[in-house]
């Protein structure tokens, strides 16, 4: 319980600092604050999808359903955080570029990522046999993850994009105020802890579902 309360206080404190202590970027003005939701959500998306790929590979090696539970749960949560990053980015685009959606390379690549991982969940939903579902979706997840660094970090940098890159840029050093970076970094940690908490709940729920299915089968 102490860890949960600490997480709650951590996120409240860093959000408050982000709003009240960190300066606003002159061009972005008040919309700078979207960054404290948008950037951590995007980073946690990468962590979640990498976690899903890791457990998919472990499932293929060990054939243990615990890994399948982790892979499925982290893909679901990765998709959720990706939606948060997309929606917050879209609101930002409206304020800065004049439209919610512009088919900018960054927006297009995130759209493809959403499609790829929605297809993963559709695949899982379409197979009844648990072992077959786990095996096929593990293979899919391993292949799908190849697109994540490509779509998030590489493609938007190949083509001209309106999206700024103040942190991961070609200039070799972060192009951002230290206070904004501190708040964003702390919130990445907070969002990551939140992800692992939600993940543990989803995995436990998956285990309960399997136990119930097993109980129903033995009753029949």
């Amino acid at each position: 319980m102490i860890a949960r309360v600490a997480l709650f206080v951590w996120i409240v404190a860093w959000l408050a600092l982000g709003f009240l202590w960190a300066p606003l970027v002159p061009v972005l003005d008040a919309t700078t604050r979207v960054f404290y939701f948008h950037f951590p959500a995007a980073m946690v998306t990468c962590i979640a999808l990498a976690w899903s790929m890791l457990h998919s590979a472990l499932y293929l090696k060990r054939r243990d359903f615990v890994h399948d539970d982790h892979a499925a749960a982290s893909a679901e949560l990765g998709l959720l955080f990706c939606l948060v990053a997309t929606i917050s980015g879209s609101l930002w685009a409206k304020a800065m570029w004049g439209a919610y959606w512009n088919w900018d390379p960054r927006e297009t690549s995130i759209f493809f990522l959403l499609l790829i991982y929605s297809a993963y969940l559709a695949l899982r939903g379409s197979i009844d046999d648990p072992a077959r579902r786990a095996r096929l979706s593990a293979i899919y997840s391993c292949i799908a993850f190849v697109t994540v660094p490509l779509l998030i970090f590489i493609v938007p940098r190949i083509y001209f994009s309106l999206h700024p890159d103040p942190l991961f840029n070609t200039r070799g050093k972060p192009d951002m105020d230290g206070r904004i970076m501190a708040c964003a970094g702390a919130l990445v940690l907070g969002f990551t802890a939140l992800f692992f908490w939600l993940l543990s709940l989803r995995v436990r729920l998956g285990r309960l579902e399997r136990r119930r299915e097993l109980a129903l089968e033995t009753r029949v």
Partner: peptide, 30 residues
């Protein structure tokens, strides 16, 4: 104003997840 809404949403989400965790723990005990 925006900070207030953000903190309210986070607070509600936190309470919801805590309740969810308690419910899962109850189901695991059965």
């Amino acid at each position: 104003m925006v900070l207030g809404v953000a903190l309210l949403v986070w607070g509600l989400l936190f309470v919801y997840v805590l309740r969810l965790e308690r419910r899962i723990r109850d189901l695991e005990k059965r």
